[in-house]
Write a protein that binds this DNA or RNA. Sequence first.
DNA 1: ATTGCTGAAAGG
Length: 366
Amino acid sequence: MAGTGQESGAAENAGFEDLSDSEFPDFSELGDIEELGSSLGNPRKEVDPQGPWKWKQEADAPTPMERFHLRCLWVSDLSTQSWCEQQMVYGKELPGFQSAEKAAVLDAGSSAHLARELELHDLVNIHTSTKEDAWAVKLLNVLTMVPILQSGGTIREFPVFGEIEGVFLVGVIDELHYTSKGELELVELKTRKRAMMPVEAQKEKDRFQVSLYKCIFDAMVRGQVTSASLVHHMKLSPEVLLGPQVHSHAQQGGFTVKSFRDLLELTFLSLNLSDLPVIDALKIEYSHQETDTVLGMEMVVFEEKQVRDKLRHHLGYWTGLREPQGVDVKEAWKCRMCDYAAICEWRQSGGMRTLSQEQRAKKMTK
DNA sequence: ATTGCTGAAAGG
């Protein structure tokens, strides 16, 4: 399958193999980070000393979508957000700031995914220079994978995209295949450093992730995602001609296309005419990184209302309806392994305490 | 065009 050919950042993740296996990150360097946090001084509103539940959104204040110059949201960001919203925000504000241990574990996970993908197809690097080209590569992948799935085959790294709850979401499904019962099943691989099944909070985040994939995929095969919506949200120009490498790869695939519009038409025609079913089953497979053994499976029950409610709550932050929140006091254990714990405003302002105040306030009004 | 710009996921 095709991938966009930006220069890979292989060098920046290299060389972490010899780090210690300690369970929690070492925060000894956080003195510097504290300075970093204040000197970077992003235009965030000051935290109201009376507590973060008193949101007074100024009418002209940019929403986080605008502030981070985002045209779409990634499923992985929403998934991180469901772990800890405040942590996800720090990740956006201070990109590239992450402990080496965590990077190494993520890197091992990436390798495992790549190995799996390569079992099914080769990768082709395609140079892209415009955003239309980058989307063209994605569309070409959809275009070549839909017939494989339609004829009962297995596909990996299937791109999904579409407007859900008013926001354009983008993601990649690990694997889709038909079960022996003829059900269309999504498989999400999760590799783990430690040879044990994850705690409930981790599972919940993973369930949310695959549920979002189903929402987007189903919308795509139901014809609810249109090329007009894609063009509008991603600010694409249908009339631009495809770059030489994209064009030649399309030709090799047997697609006669010149402009981005041609490819849009073909892709949405294919999606709408192929009559693919919605996803019947969601499966998460946890496996141990070092030994590559399966630790366990989780079949996810798709609960549309709960997923949509949770998504809308998360989108409320992005669209500026509410301030970001950290974790509830019950989940403060997550902070032990958070790279931003030492600079976290939620922690410093006693966010966990004010949350219980908020709950008490709610009770009193009832 | 004065205001440009994006690989998604990787795991806890």
